[in-house]
Design a protein around this nucleic acid. Sequence first.
DNA 1: GCATGATCATGC
DNA 2: GCATGATCATGC
Length: 484
Amino acid sequence: MAPYDNTNPASIEAYAKKLIGKTFKQVYEESLDLDFAIKDSNIDYSNPNQKGNLGNLLEECYFGYKANGEQDADFPEAEVELKATCFDILKNKKLSAGERLVLTMISFEEPVEKDFYQSHVWNKCKRILLIYYHRDKSLAYNTLYKIHYANIVSPAKADLPIIINDYNKIIEKIESGRAHELSESDTLYLGACTKGSTAAKSWRTQYYNPEVPARKRAFCFKRQYMDYILHTYIVPDKTTYEPLIKDVSLLHEKSFEQIIEERIEQYYGKTDKELCTLFDREYNNNKAQWTDLAYRMLGIKGNHAEEFQKANIVVKVIRLEEDNSMNESISFPAFKFKELAEQEWEDSDVFEYFEETRFFYILFKRDGDCYRVHKCQFWNMPSDDLNGTVKAGWEQVKNTIIDGVRFTIKETKSGVIVKNNLLGKKDNRIIHIRPHASKAAYRLNSGFEIGKVDKDANELPNGEYMTTQSFWINNSYILEQLGL
DNA sequence: GCATGATCATGC
DNA sequence: GCATGATCATGC
């Protein structure tokens, strides 16, 4: 018998805490002398590069029960689920949750469970024994990762209405035969993440729509939600989270998104100058001003809205002209040519960004020399667009980079301009490529060189250097999506 | 007027 | 100093 009471959460947690300071390799080696450890496993725990098996290793070698894929909790009598998960240490020394927490597979092949509290998800998340290890990528083997924390956590009462709403949103999509259109960015804390490759074996038949297969997915807590758990319950620190909704009972009447949209609606028609007076803020043309006003309308002083951070919601402020046009497209983080050339669509930065990020657009519209609050909308990219048009554009960029970007150098009055054949705005309905650096910089095989290539450029597969670029969302697409 | 290349500004 | 968001400027 293992030395803990598997019917008692406190006993399980106390035993788990004895893992702190050990590496997975140590746990395995010590288990060789333990009579209760599982010896006849079909997994070889002596292999130093355990991929998804670090959790199984703890279950079998340390807790002494057979790892299984059942949708019941791991310690059914104590209603505790064991999850091994990782954190990274960022350059600024802060901890960061390494991955989303996968709770349980979503079954598309049978009727949905409508009551959250009767669902497998609730079984798997009501009491989670979180075993946090440091994913130190400088180590040669995964089994050398060290365990730092072991805590039982439950979703906070304040988070449950949002999690339940997320659950309902996901099962409603499945029930209406649209499981193939699910995206992790559809919801706030509880997500439907992809699971497995895009290969045929990772697709499932839909009970509610047998004609259209859907990619395998699992319920998960989003990475950003895990970040909140890490910084709040596991290693409390000074990370700032300002709640938007202080009175949780509001969430029993309306959804989070309704409440937030109504907050902005109160200000529709107000000018930026009026808002500055209202919020006692100096009016200037500082471009951060409108974003700042957006947060003030939402009721917080800084820009660390708790629910937005936990749900990975990005606030975007757009200023429209009087004819509802929008002068600029929106840029996204810069990328490295050689990295993109080696990625596949499913694990590309672009795919992950739009699959996981939800947006909250706040629109101001020009009226003479000021802007009035005009509209607001939550949005995430529809999966058809992401896996159709955006994927095609991304593939085109990848191919151009691999084939070799073609450059045309033009002398103009104001200096030299270097043109290229990467994806332009006319080439794709949704995205295009533009430079993203402080200065232009090139070093081409033709001998042409300009600017600081180590600072403002990065290398192409053929050894040439080109000004660092990023993806942009076409303004025309944004206007279309916002119904303007 | 728009598309595209170039650059600025700010916060950490 | 860099990452990121935002905007400028010119030629077609």
